[in-house]
Design a protein around this nucleic acid. Sequence first.
DNA 1: CCGATACATCAGTGAGCGTTGAGACACTTC
DNA 2: GAAGTGTCTCAACGCTCACTGATGTATCGG
Lengths: 112, 112
Amino acid sequence: MSISERVLPVLPDPRLDLPAPDVAAAVAAAALLGDPTRAGILALLAGGPHCVCEMAAALGERQNNVSNHLARLRDAGLVRASRHRADARWVFYERDEAACAAVARSLEGLLR
Amino acid sequence: MSISERVLPVLPDPRLDLPAPDVAAAVAAAALLGDPTRAGILALLAGGPHCVCEMAAALGERQNNVSNHLARLRDAGLVRASRHRADARWVFYERDEAACAAVARSLEGLLR
DNA sequence: CCGATACATCAGTGAGCGTTGAGACACTTC
DNA sequence: GAAGTGTCTCAACGCTCACTGATGTATCGG
């Protein structure tokens, strides 16, 4: 349960000049996923496109709230919106798989 | 730029009975990584064990603040602590690679 | 044109969380 | 023992952010 002595100095000599790692991108990505509603949206969209009212019903959230979070995900480029051809009142969302993969790589870079 | 019509119904028929996806674990993990200090700690520990004062200096944060975030990471099982043998005042932290891998898989499950 | 529907936007509010400061704890050295 | 060092804990403050309610936009049906 203790850290191997091979990687620790015999006497402590703290290095106070370590460079600060750049984690801004990963933190922004994690903050996006750190909300239940946004994570639920992405999970739902993994199964294909959905309109706003479907996601709101599935998540038990109000439409305007879901719409707010969709705007956040849109600004981050994780989802795309397009109106239905037959009835353009309905806005369907789908994931941008390339952007999601980039986010996954960014987060994996923190934990790898 | 529009969603393929093949996956959309000709007429909108919203499914209001979709099950809510279970994202609790992934959300908790993402919330942990969504803080710059905690993410910086994990990034620093990717290079091997470090004591608290080293990480505080590298991140430009105070020791008690870093200690607070380390407690969060400890409670989540992502890091382990052990005291230095020669001088037990120094507490060195290292990552629990198995737990980090589990978190990575959990997050990847959201984006895959 | 008018009402209804689906969604978007925005100011205001409240709760959660990160930071701070003070103090306590553990350990070493003299 | 006392003083010094590294770390930990915790109440209190402050600020960010998610939720709410109201309103606005776009579209369809009659």
